[in-house]
Design a protein around this nucleic acid. Sequence first.
RNA 1: GCGCCGGUAGCUCAAUUGGCAGAGCAUUUGACUCUUAAUCAACAGGUUCCGGGUUCAAGUCCCGGCCGGCGCACCA
Length: 468
Amino acid sequence: MTSPYQFAHDAYAARLRQSFDHLAPGEESGEVVRVAGRVMLLRTQGRLTFATLRDSSGEVQLFCLEAATEGYEAFTRLHLGDWVGAVGEVVRTQRGELSVKVATWAVLAEARRTFGEKWAGITDVELRYRHREADLWANETTRASLRRRSDVVRALREHCWAQGFVEVETPILNAVPTGAAARPFVTFHNALDSEFFLRIAPELWLKRLVVGGFERVFELGRVFRNEGVSPRHNPEFTMLELYAAYWDYADMMRFTEELVAGAVAAVLGTTELVYQGRAVSFATPWARRPMAELVSEALGEEVTVRTPRATLAALLAERGVEVADAWGAGRCVLELFEHLCEGDLWAPTFVTDYPVEVSPLARRHRDDPELTERFEAFVTGRELANGFSELNDPVEQRARFEDQARLAAAGEDETMSIDEDYIASLEWGLPPTAGLGVGVDRLAMIVADAANIREVIAFPTLKPRREG
RNA sequence: GCGCCGGUAGCUCAAUUGGCAGAGCAUUUGACUCUUAAUCAACAGGUUCCGGGUUCAAGUCCCGGCCGGCGCACCA
């Protein structure tokens, strides 16, 4: 018997449960349906057999009688995990379980491997990540986490569309890895005889589209950073980046809190949730706190980017942070923030007014030339989003890139490369613009209550298994 | 990259001080006309992650390696 190419199915488990809720135990509906899914459990009792069938919506029982089911004997020999299509009347058994009383049925595909212990499922994390398909069938929480991720992505995209943003796609293969400070993955194009880098951010391309007249653009896509793997970092991850002409960073903060709170509400039905046992409210507006203010509070003494570098360096050294020679006062303030404040920002908070030194693409603050109009959104102690009024002066942008080059020369690992094409694009004129980047995996983690980023990535990056 | 912890049957887990490597589920065979992780009976199932070493004897102790988890570092 060849395996079927098709099965015309017209019913889902969840909908059957709703539609036939009224059936009393022992009652037969008279209605014939065609269901399909995997056999999750099988209970044979001589001349009658019960199977639990699971489809994408849920589970429903199949009820087979030797006298009423074609090929009954073969049905009793099904394996857990086999894909089955069944045709039969919707009934409720004497014991009250809604069932499809199978008249005819077909194996759609065999499962030649098992899906783990039927109660404990699969717990081996390595097996779960390397064979997510098995994990998905074995574990409800995996299905829920990946489903929530999908819902988050949908909500973000729909919010952007609704606000008039145009979705675009920009190159992943880049001759210059730029738009962020991170080590790239390197690859090679044979015909062009050139080295390429997988993008670390789409930022500069997107702003070039704004120069070209797309006033509101967004890209929802994968970026790649050649850095350590951790429960919060996957080498490839998903970022939402968007740019809006004529906005400044205050406009963008308002947009960001609506975007994120809206996505949380769209998925969970509320802006209130519990992450890892601790309540978080995404209700807007979120707190806005200048970085220097937060650092000063944590230190118990007033510091700013104008505090002498030596003083800041001493404060860092006291806390066991190794201070590099190349760091100026601005970088020191940022380091103090990261060590003293970041982890405590549990409720959504915009940290604003980053030092110029650590923000090479952000526009100078209108009230303080040592700062930029930049913010980062923190929640559950982690960075979730980063945005700013975009630097649109090509002369200053070149100078900022040159500062980065000096840092690189001084031994800093991760600096931003000069992108001449980008400077050229600024010379054509970038209107006042605000930009935003949101870590989609991080947001999915919060919504799925996942402690590990791999739980919201279908196929997380793992070290390849070595054969032999 | 560094540190700590882990890896036993297809899956979930046991194995005392170093003393014959076991159970449940799944698989295979049989019984059973209302089951719900069905139940009952029987059979079978092993490179204890890999490679060395110590020992009369190693899943267990020692060394090296592989893979994973967590922490640190780096970042979002």
